[in-house]
């Protein structure tokens, strides 16, 4: 899981870039999930998350 790349200078740049990309991918997923919970206009999403939208002070209606 941790990754087998060594910390040899030649390998660091691509290993670091890979980690940063994965952090960015996680952040992007977070934004997509936030959109679904808090902003999606689908009536089903709205009604299911209705109270959470109000409580977390998202524009709801």
């Amino acid at each position: 899981m941790i990754g087998t790349s060594t910390t040899a200078p030649a390998g660091v740049t691509s290993a670091v870039r890979s980690l940063l990309l994965q952090l960015a991918a996680a952040a992007a997923l977070g934004l997509v999930v936030l959109y679904g919970v808090a902003f999606a206009e689908s009536p089903v999403a709205h009604n299911a998350a209705h109270d959470v939208r109000h409580v977390t002070v998202k524009p709801c209606h």
Partner: peptide, 27 residues
Amino acid sequence: AWTFAANVLHAFSMALLVFAVMGVALW
């Protein structure tokens, strides 16, 4: 139950953003 599910998803989205920020700070 749906409020709970929405709360978990909301917290999940924020946790991913927090981790990303912390990861960048570590870098």
